[in-house]
C-alpha cells in the first residue's frame, strides 16, 4: 500500500494555482526525488505531505491519514513523517544534543537514558559527536543540516521529507550532507527529496518526479528521466542544470 497517495490534488495561493491536479503515490522504502524549475511548486508539494501547507481540492492520504479531514491529528502524523528544511531550523536556544533529544522526550516520552544513548548514536552516524554541546549558531551550515537530519531520525520516522536540503550550503559542505542522506536511504526510510542535486537523484533516487508550473510532467525511474526525458519542458530543464 502506498504510504503517500495524492489524487487530483489542487492548491491555490489566493488566485494563483500552485499545484494542478497532482496524482502520484509513494510506496514504503522509495526515494522519490522531485525536480523542476524554481517556482514550480516543489516546496509547496512536499510541505503538503506533513500538513505545513493544506490542499484545497482532491485527496491526500499520508500514512493512512486523510490530510483533508479536519479531525486528523497532524502532531501525531508528524511523529512518523519527519522533515529537513533548506535553512535547517534547528532550535536556536538549545544545544545540538538537546535539539535531537527534545521531541523524543516530550512527544514520545522516551526514557532519558535511552534517549541520550540514541542521540549520541545518531551524532556518531552524522559524524558530529564532538559538537554535542555546541549551539546551532556555532556550527557551519553543513554541520547544522546533518544535525537536522539526526534530529529527524531520532523520532524513528517512516518518512523523511527533504526540502532543498543542500541549497543553502557552501559547495564544499554539500557532499557531507548528501552522504548522510544516502545512509538514511540505506536504512530503508521512505524519502521524498526536493533538490537540485542531479547526481543524487540519479544515484540514490528510485524515482524522479518532474514538476513544472504546478504540474507533474514526468514520473519515471532516474535512468529513463535523465537519458530519455519525454517532455520538451524536461529536456530544456535538464540542458540547463546539467550544463554546469
Amino acid at each position: 500500500m502506498a504510504i503517500i497517495d495524492f489524487k487530483h490534488v489542487d492548491k491555490f495561493y489566493g488566485g494563483f494555482h500552485v499545484l494542478k491536479d497532482i496524482n502520484f503515490r509513494v510506496n514504503g522504502g522509495e526515494v522519490v526525488v522531485i525536480v523542476g524549475p524554481s517556482g514550480s511548486g516543489k516546496s509547496t508539494l512536499i510541505r503538503t505531505i506533513n500538513g505545513l501547507e493544506r490542499i484545497n481540492d482532491g485527496s491526500l492520504i499520508v500514512d493512512g491519514k486523510d490530510m483533508t479531514d479536519k479531525s486528523t491529528n497532524f502532531n501525531e502524523l508528524r511523529r512518523d513523517v519527519g522533515m529537513v528544511f533548506q535553512h535547517f531550523n534547528l532550535y536556536a536556544n538549545k544545544t545540538v544534543l538537546e535539539n535531537i533529544m527534545l521531541a523524543p522526550r516530550i512527544v514520545l516520552h522516551r526514557p532519558e537514558e535511552e534517549n541520550h544513548k540514541e542521540a549520541m548514536r545518531l551524532l556518531e552516524e552524522v559524524n558530529l559527536v564532538e559538537k554535542a554541546n555546541s549551539y546551532p549558531h556555532q556550527l557551519s551550515g553543513g554541520q547544522q543540516q546533518r544535525i537536522a537530519i539526526a534530529r529527524s531520525l531520532a523520532m524513528k520516522p517512516k518518512v523523511i521529507l527533504f526540502d532543498e536540503p543542500t541549497s543553502a550550503l557552501d559547495p564544499e559542505m554539500i557532499q557531507d550532507v548528501l552522504d548522510v542522506m544516502k545512509l538514511v536511504a540505506q536504512e530503508g526510510i521512505t524519502m521524498v527529496v526536493v533538490t537540485h542535486e542531479m547526481g543524487f537523484a540519479r544515484e540514490v533516487g528510485t524515482r524522479v518526479v518532474f514538476l513544472a508550473d504546478g504540474e507533474i510532467l514526468e514520473d519515471s525511474d532516474p535512468k529513463s528521466f535523465f537519458d530519455h526525458p519525454q517532455t520538451k519542458r524536461a529536456r530544456q530543464f535538464l540542458s540547463k542544470v546539467i550544463s554546469h
Binding site: G82, L90, Y91, I106, V107, L108, A148, R151, L161
Partner: peptide
C-alpha cells in the same frame, strides 16, 4: 522557521511555544 522546525519534529503548538519560541 523555528515554529515549523518544531511542528515538523512532532511537537504541538504549545510544546513549541514553551520549549523553543517563548524562551
Amino acid at each position: 522557521g523555528q515554529m515549523e522546525g518544531c511542528l515538523a519534529n512532532g511537537l504541538s503548538y504549545w510544546q513549541a511555544m514553551k520549549n523553543v519560541i517563548l524562551p
